[in-house]
């Protein structure tokens, strides 16, 4: 009998499965237990299966990372709605930060940010976020 992927606890465990342990048909599950109405459950409370890409990361794709400056943000949610990678964490209509595990560094959030100066800016991947915040530019004069 195939190992039930729902019982697999970690990503590493999946990698070691033999042909005899995988689910027939290569079906994958999103959660380890039933979630009655998923839209009512925020991601931090979901019983994600290790087979859910939420549990994986693509942060290493980035060359530059978006850094978020709370002091300037007006919580307009443009970054949230246009982020292709569900990497803008927003709760109760407030922008909280960037999910770096899932952010591929596309820079859309920075482009769509309407504040002046912007509340999100791209910085080199290796730079410390506090250092980046210290380097934040001043308000740009309208040309």
């Amino acid at each position: 009998m195939a190992k039930d992927l729902k019982e697999v606890k970690s990503i590493d465990e999946i990698k070691d499965l033999g042909w005899n342990e995988i689910i027939p048909g290569a079906s994958l599950f999103s959660f380890t237990e039933p979630v009655e109405n998923v839209v009512e459950v925020p991601e931090e409370e979901r019983p994600y299966a290790p087979t859910n890409s939420h549990e994986w990361q693509v942060g290493d794709w980035r060359v530059e990372k978006p850094v978020y400056n709370r002091d300037l943000c007006i919580d307009c949610q443009f970054c949230w709605v246009f982020c292709p990678d569900i990497s803008i964490l927003s709760r109760d209509k407030k922008m909280i930060g960037v999910i770096y595990e899932h952010c591929k560094g596309c820079g859309i959030c920075v482009e769509v940010c309407p504040t002046n100066p912007k509340s999100l800016l791209m910085f080199p991947e290796h730079m410390d976020n506090n250092e980046a915040l210290n380097m934040w530019p001043k308000k740009e004069e309208k040309k």
Partner: peptide, 10 residues
């Protein structure tokens, strides 16, 4: 079964 989302045809 909406409580147990499954991905078919990977």
């Amino acid at each position: 079964d909406v409580a147990n989302p499954v991905t078919h045809g990977v």
